[in-house]
């Protein structure tokens, strides 16, 4: 079960939907899971570590809340706009630079290896 499945499985994903779960924050055991939790979020956890964490998650509100924080960070970072590089295409500037270099030192050019 991946992070997505877990959130869907738990309906709204709202941590307050689980009254029976402990809400005291991360226990010592949870802290031991925290590095694995980050890898689990990325779908990169495997083997025994994955099985252990998957057994722990359904009963742990703190870890699930942590997963949601990771998702919020991801949502924020993926919303960052990608901007075009400057007013002038890089290729144009690059061609000029390479032509100048070839002029100064014909050993370095031309535009072929």
């Amino acid at each position: 079960m991946g992070y997505r499945t877990l959130v869907e499985h738990n309906g709204s994903g709202n941590v307050s939907d689980y009254p029976s779960l402990e809400v005291k924050g991360m226990s010592k055991q949870c802290k031991e899971y925290s590095v694995d939790l980050s890898a689990y979020f990325d779908g990169e956890l495997e083997g025994e570590a994955l099985l252990k964490l998957e057994a722990h998650l359904p009963s742990c509100i703190a870890c699930r809340s942590d997963l949601q924080k990771l998702q919020r960070i991801r949502n924020a970072l993926t919303s960052l706009a990608s901007t075009p590089p400057g007013k002038r295409p890089i290729l144009e500037a690059l061609r000029e630079k390479l032509a100048k270099e070839t002029e100064e030192d014909p050993q370095k050019g031309p535009l072929v290896c």
Partner: peptide, 26 residues
Amino acid sequence: KSRLFRARERLKELLADYMNIHRDSA
């Protein structure tokens, strides 16, 4: 794996205000 974990821990601190405002976005 360990550096990504550390980066995220640090971002949680740095973006604490943002995360509280955007709780529903997860």
